[in-house]
Design a binder for these strands. Structure first.
Length: 573
RNA sequence: UGGGACGUCGGCAAGCGGUAAGCCCCCGGGUUUUGGUCCCGGUAUUCGCAGGUUCGAAUCCUGCCGUCCCAGCCA
């Protein structure tokens, strides 16, 4: 949906509807959101949806969106992730201006707010260990095959310590007097609450782990539920948009807001993105990287922003996709074909056309003189005449795609076969006169044809119909390159649906990458810059990979062209 | 046998008491020097199910059923 349509149709999603209502009723005077990634991995298309929602909702109301690193777990976070996230958000087209924040910058304020809660008798230092906390919470009561959390929890014996003792203990926790895990600061809410998160949640834990930003300055770290609403408050966030799994955290979010008496941000939850044939969870992506199942975070098969960029996706196509899937509360699984449609649509308009042959077979034009080379005109982009044209050399021996020749044509095949006529794109109309086979393998090693001199450029002056047009590359000037043909990372639509005892790793596709070590391209491909996506006519879109060197190019297949012939052939078989 | 949410076409998703938008996929047909693009046409008598209210219900009420989330001192 375009911006103008959005305007016309009022607010197209429940979040904008709610925000508009808040503004109208005076609950907030402006809109201020935030994108709060944890710097513990590279961001993927699922985060892109959150970024899109956070930035675009704010923009719809003339508001701002902050970038805030939610870095309160020193064990997993580091600076390289911060840099990667910033680069990717920027690349997607979003600008947080000077509002780059870190939850770790709020540690001191957070600590003071925790003391405030202690003083109000709403927080206490607990000596229970991890196991005991779990036990006292009253969870883990199995029932048949289900699990029930019905039983109320029990109060910790340390729950009623005095304010003074709590203040003292908390200060000593900070000072490093107690070993890791020996004490926690807990909110005093209700151990019988039906919502488990409200059963005295942990606010601080002791962890002697250097933090990538604060170093060894702290040995106590705040937990998400305590830290997030307060970080939002510190930044004056009006709408704290997050995914559905935080719905159950909202009462806690509001408890901290009201008891700490801070700016009341409103948390609204929406469904996170799920995509077929891939996994969208940092935890699983990290596993793929660590176990070497992919070449890295930016492997073109990864649903990471960096992977998609390297694959050849454009930020425009990704944003278009994000706009089309909508924002709602229904758990959903979006067909990856919609993403592919978006990139094809974008690239169809933008990508320059070239000819390249992935699976070459020689075609010899017998009535063409031995050393004659002609330069022919080829249109750079039929969708954009202003993109101009280029010259491509034509000679006696050319390469064509082996699939474009059949000794015995299947029904409806209108490419090359003995006796048939076909047009060489931007070249001549030729007639197949024969072919040579390797006596040992039975494979076709060369095709013979004769050209019609009256068809230069591909136009048949008479009105004869030449149904087929095939691409080609002149052998004498062909530029060899490596093509990496990518396909879905996972075979099944839902890779996480695995039988008990099995891993999603078993669902990795065998043909997610097929390397063609020696494909041939027309001379002009040498000038394609790294990172640019082009179309190889009749094949698909390809992006020049950074692995390319001066004399050997690598092209990644972004996505193939729609292939109607493949469908017909499949139906006939 | 707890709590929180969600169920509209194969997949997303509008709809907000007045008689089921749109997009992707799929299937036909046309144009075409990419079997690409583009264009035209076809795809839910029905909204998880069952009742009820109403002149009128996907929209309101009641009850079922199904799916997801919550048992980190992760976020």
């Amino acid at each position: 949906m375009s911006e103008s349509q959005k305007e016309e149709s009022g607010y197209s999603d429940f979040i904008r509807e709610a925000v508009a209502k808040d503004l109208k009723e005076g609950r907030y005077k402006e809109v201020h959101t935030r994108f709060p990634p944890e710097p513990n991995g590279w961001i993927h298309i699922g985060h892109a949806k959150a970024i899109y929602v956070d930035f675009e909702v704010a923009a719809s109301f003339g508001g701002k969106c902050n970038l805030r690193f939610d870095d309160t777990n020193p064990e997993k976070e580091d600076m390289s992730y911060v840099e990667a996230i910033k680069r990717d958000v920027k690349w997607l087209g979003y600008d947080w201006e000077d509002r780059e924040f870190y939850a770790s910058d709020y540690y001191e304020t957070l600590y003071e707010l925790a003391r405030k809660l202690i003083r109000k008798g709403l927080a206490y230092v607990d000596d229970l260990d991890e196991e005991q906390i779990k036990e006292y919470r009253g969870t883990n009561v199995p029932d048949k095959n289900n699990i029930t959390y019905t039983p109320p929890g029990k109060n910790s014996p340390y729950r009623d310590r005095s304010v003074e003792e709590n203040l003292d203990l908390f200060a000593r926790m900070r000072a490093g007097e107690f070993p890791d895990g020996s004490k926690t600061l807990r909110a005093k809410i209700d151990m019988a609450h039906p919502n488990l998160l409200m059963r005295d949640p942990v606010m601080y834990r002791i962890r002697r782990e250097p933090h990538y930003r604060t170093g060894t300055q702290w040995c106590i770290y705040p937990m998400y539920d305590f830290q997030h609403p307060l970080s939002d408050a510190i930044e004056g966030i009006t709408h704290s948009l997050c995914s559905l799994e935080y719905e159950i955290h909202r009462p806690l979010y509001e408890w901290f807001v009201s008891n700490c008496e801070v700016f009341p941000s409103r948390q609204i939850e929406f469904a996170r993105l799920n995509l077929t044939h891939t996994v969208l969870s940092k935890r699983w992506l990290i596993q793929l990287v660590r176990e070497g199942m992919v070449s890295g975070w930016d492997d073109p098969r990864m649903p990471t922003i960096a992977g998609m960029r390297r694959r050849g996706y454009s930020p425009e196509a990704i944003r278009d996709f994000l706009g089309r899937i909508g924002i709602a509360k229904t758990d959903s699984m979006v067909d990856i074909q919609l993403l592919e449609h978006c990139i094809r649509e974008d690239l169809n308009k933008k990508a320059s056309r070239y000819m390249a042959v992935l699976n070459p077979v020689k075609l010899i034009i017998d009535n063409w003189s031995e050393d004659k080379i002609e330069l022919l005109d080829a249109v750079n982009n039929p969708e954009r005449p202003e993109a101009g044209s280029r010259k491509i050399p034509f000679s006696k021996v050319i390469y064509i795609e082996s699939e474009d020749f059949r000794e015995v044509p299947p029904p409806k095949y209108y490419r090359l076969f003995p006796g048939n006529q076909v047009r060489l794109r931007y070249g001549y109309v030729i007639t197949c006169t024969g072919f040579e086979k390797d006596p040992e393998t039975g494979r076709t090693i060369a095709v013979h044809a004769e050209y019609d001199p009256d068809t230069r450029g591909g136009d048949a002056k008479d009105n004869r119909k030449v149904k087929g047009t095939i691409h080609w590359v002149s052998a004498e000037s062909a530029i060899p390159f490596e093509a990496r043909l990518y396909d879905y990372l996972f075979e099944p639509e839902r890779p996480m649906d695995v039988a008990p005892g099995h891993s999603f790793m078993e669902n990795l596709s065998e043909h997610s990458l097929e390397v063609v070590p020696k494909a041939f391209g027309e001379p002009a491909i040498a000038d394609v810059p790294v990172g640019e996506t082009v179309q190889f006519e009749r094949i698909g879109y390809f992006c020049k990979d950074p692995d390319s060197t001066r004399d050997s190019a690598v092209f990644n297949r972004t996505v193939g062209l729609r292939d109607t012939w493949a469908k017909i052939e499949k139906k006939n078989s």
